Computed example of a mutant assay.
Amino acid sequence: MVSSLSQERPQASAGAGAGMRDPFFDNAKYLAIVLVAVGHSWEPLPGSGRLVEALYSFVYAFHMPVFIVIAGYFSRGFDMSPKRVWRLVTGILVPYLVFEVAYTLFQRAVETPGFPLTPADPYWILWFLPALFLWRITTPFWQLVRWPVPVSLAVAVLASMSTGIGDDLQLMRVLQFLPFFVLGLRLRPEHFAYLRRTRVRVAALPVALVALLVAYWSVPRMSTSWFFRSYGARQLDEPVWAGAAMTLILFAAALVLGACFLAWVPRRRLWMTALGAGTLYGYLLHGFFIRGARFLGGYDDPFLEIPAGRIAVTLAAALLVTALCTPPVRRVFRYVVEPRMEWARAAGSGPETPTYAQPSETYTERRQRELQGPANRPGRPDRGGR
């Protein structure tokens, strides 16, 4: 999902030529989108039980933070140049508006005839698109501030303690998830390479097991609403200080579990690698199927109340989102998910000229490299398309 959402070129893997996709990130995005779809498929399960709730809490503790960290990592070269702003609008805002209308019409058709169209209040899963837009346009600021991650974490803490943040553009989520995006901006390739070490991969297994046990213990003691970052502490009937504490605890938990997840993501090219380039399609489209199944009574079958039924739902969600990431689906929906909209560009602006800024570069680093001139850019082609 991130490559499509962020509209940036994935970093070339070690030893690969410039401009080649790194299989690691595509594999990570595919596995993460499977977790997203599976988590959404668990939500409507009747009487899901403590085990499913524990798995749900475990997955939600890190799957969106992983997405957001990677999105931040691939936003490192973003500036406010006309070319990049155009890509931001056509790659994020336009699909958001299209799918906001589509999901509104869908909701009206299957459940609520009078369901309002409210672009300022994103429909369910669509919150991530305007959030990414807002995070990205602030990238130049986070590249300049001295302590970006602590500052963004302070913003998230204050948001969780606030009572005056409205629902427009899911601003509460935008602010509480902000530290993960800023962290991604600060990461370097060596940070991901560190996760490849054997001792890290070995340690990831017992850490994940302990986290599962903690999730199981926490089910009757903690609301899963904390993981959504949609509410402040007062809205969850908790004291204000709990908002600050939970923000810090969940941030630490997401970092640890996200590292465990990434440590076991395959680094080589596999069957799933090509699907990782189409995760935006799976993300935007799977909601129609899951919400449709819920609205049309698909979750009312008593079979879903037994373990075999819950396993069947999990496998069905994984297969569904996998199918939605395949090239045939991408070809059909490309014009609404990744519109180029050259017809809307001002006359004389010319075609988009791609750049080869790597995601490991900050904006300042890229500008310094560009000022050196082509002769001092080893391994970088002077022209070419994405």
Rank of each mutant, 00 (worst) to 15 (best):
Q7G: 15
Q7S: 15
E8M: 04
A18N: 08
F24P: 00
V38W: 10
W42R: 01
E43D: 12
S48M: 12
G49F: 06
L51D: 09
V59Q: 07
F67G: 04
V69G: 00
G72N: 04
G72F: 03
S75N: 06
D79L: 02
D79C: 00
S81C: 05
W86Q: 08
R87C: 05
R87I: 07
P95V: 11
P95S: 10
R108V: 06
A109G: 13
G114F: 03
P116H: 08
W127P: 02
W127R: 02
R136V: 04
R146F: 04
P148F: 02
V151I: 13
S160K: 05
S162R: 12
G164E: 14
G164M: 03
G166P: 05
D167Q: 11
D168Q: 14
L169I: 10
M172A: 09
F177K: 02
F180R: 03
F181I: 01
L185R: 01
R186A: 05
E190F: 07
R199L: 06
R201L: 03
V207T: 14
A208F: 13
V210K: 07
P220T: 09
M222S: 07
F227D: 05
R229A: 06
S230C: 02
S230A: 14
R234G: 00
V240H: 05
A242E: 12
T247I: 03
L248S: 11
I249Q: 12
L250S: 05
L255M: 15
L255F: 08
G258D: 13
A259D: 01
A259C: 13
L262P: 08
R267H: 12
A274D: 15
L285M: 08
F288S: 04
G292Q: 09
F295G: 00
G297C: 07
D301Q: 11
F303C: 01
P307S: 06
A316G: 08
L320S: 07
V321F: 07
C325L: 05
T326I: 00
P328W: 09
R331S: 10
V332C: 02
R345C: 09
S349H: 08
E352D: 12
T362A: 01
E365W: 09
R366M: 06
Q368F: 06
E370L: 15
L371K: 14
P374V: 07
D382W: 13
